[in-house]
Amino acid sequence: MKKLLINIILFFLIAIVVGEVVVRLTHAIADIPQRTIDDHGIQKYFPNQDGYWKGGEHKWTVNKLGWPGELPESNDNLIMVIGDSFIENFMNPNECHQSAFLKANMKDYNFMEAGRSGVSLIEAMEISKQLDSLKPKQSLIYVNDEDFYESIVQVKSMKDITQLDIKNKTIRYGEMKAPGLKKVLYSWKLMYYFYNRFPLDNLINTNSKQEAATTNSEAEVKSYSTEINQLTEYIKQNYTISDKTLVFHPNSEQSIINICKDAGFKIIVLDSSNDDTWTFDHDPHWTCYGHKKAAEQISKDLLNSANLGAFR
């Protein structure tokens, strides 16, 4: 028995080393950039990082400001593109980012992205506030229904995301969740590979997961309409919204869109109906094609408005 156990342990130790080499060489798991929290409480990335996306087909980059993607050549006629993992867009190469497609469609303007996975609406507003010093003409804030719920402590309390406490009318800045563990996990690629391939929550009954995952229904919006109204009211009072445009993902809840319209936001609603090729097969994020189509709709909308500052 002792001999067997020693051999098993030895085999596993060698397997771990071999596995680490294989995972790194084949880019079986995406490289993950390291995050930091800046002086304004915003979680962003350490500047000037790069790494490979899963499969190693393309590289992602983090620019000197700590946001994924490339910086514009100039800050003249600048339009900010702010959002979550859709804007962060590690799964596509830089030429498939919103800024690249928008620039191709609107050559007189420059575009700068500020995206990070998990960004809520209130966090996007905070980011836009910080970036207002660059004097952008417009800020496009990409949102989906979840970004509204995740903005409000009383609706969906999340410690790692910046949220609004609507009771006390205060911003609660997000904390880094297990930064030490994350550092180990992202550096030990084999472990991160297993963590991704065999998530521990698979052990939990899938039924209860499904029950917990009910979101975005009309009923839910109705039940939180007061809170969402309070959120938009807070945003109106504390941020400039005249130069902000909310870009709603396809299939967003109409009642949330209406609340935002009523609050005075400029709105663009993306439409991917009759086109299911916007997203990856096993990933809800947009493909390069999806980004291109989204950018086409946005630039068309922006160009149709005679004056970017007063469209719609």
Binding site: F11, I14, V18, G19, V22, T26, A28, R197
Partner: peptide
């Protein structure tokens, strides 16, 4: 022999 076992394991994880 162990390298062969490793190959099988790597293939398993690669194609699972």
């Amino acid at each position: 022999r162990w390298a062969f076992y490793m190959l099988l394991i790597v293939l398993m994880f690669s194609f699972t």
